[in-house]
Design a protein around this nucleic acid. Structure first.
Length: 205
DNA sequence: AGTTCGATCGCCT
DNA sequence: GGCGATCGAACTG
């Protein structure tokens, strides 16, 4: 099995730029679709976004934000371009990026990444992964692989720290498939899941 | 203060 | 295709 990095971290930084805050201050659905192909970087690990879901505001009963502002949902209503990280099922962390202007709820759940840099470090964090495509092919898997926890909840990913989202200068072209969201019990027919057609790192089902 | 159940994963059959 | 693991947020009384 080849655990060699598709792109070395230094080369990634040289061939990409930080996604700025105004990108996130738009409709959650537009941001969700356009996050596909961008790269999440945390520390020495990075992965290209290949699957996302949009979670809307008060009318979206599948979204945490539908309960209004609580201690947990506060960051979803706050400034765009921040990470919303929550703990689920007693064992998994899930990563979202906050959208819409300050005061309006909206977030994009990152469901799968294509590993780009730091594959050996990811494998150390998720020894159960048999091959690179097992590393980040699910929302709980990718946070484990990149070392993302609730400690990063509310962090601004547009200010150039060690947790950020970057866009490649020369992205590969791709097609987008749209489906209903997965693993929810309400609004199960809303077409708010988007993934890169045919990408092997997309979570199953 | 107690209860419910969830934006999941991996192992078992 | 089913289920156990494991815990915290939010709602009930």
């Amino acid at each position: 099995m080849h655990w060699k990095d598709p792109i070395a971290l230094d080369d990634l930084f040289a061939s990409s730029r930080l996604v700025p805050q105004p990108f996130y201050a738009r409709s959650t659905i537009a941001v969700a679709r356009e996050l596909l192909g961008k790269v999440v970087v945390h520390g020495h690990t990075a992965g290209r976004i290949v699957e996302v879901e949009a979670y809307l505001g008060l009318d979206d009963l599948a979204a945490h934000a539908s309960r209004g502002i609580t201690g947990r949902t506060r960051v979803i209503f706050g400034p765009p371009g921040r990470a919303y990280v929550y703990f689920i099922y007693g064992m998994h962390e899930c990563l979202n990026f906050v959208c819409e202007p300050d005061g309006i709820a909206g977030a994009v759940l990152i469901r799968a990444l294509e590993p780009v840099s730091g594959l050996l470090r990811m494998r150390r964090r998720r020894p159960v992964a048999r091959e690179p495509r097992d590393l980040c092919s699910g929302p709980g898997k990718l946070t484990a692989a990149l070392g993302i926890t609730r400690a990063l909840n509310g962090v601004d990913v547009t200010s150039g720290g060690d947790f950020s989202v970057r866009e490649l200068e020369r992205p590969e072209p791709f097609a987008i498939t749209t489906t209903p969201r997965i693993g929810i019990t309400k609004c199960t027919d809303w077409p708010l899941r988007f993934y890169i057609t045919g990408n092997p790192n997309v979570s199953k089902r």
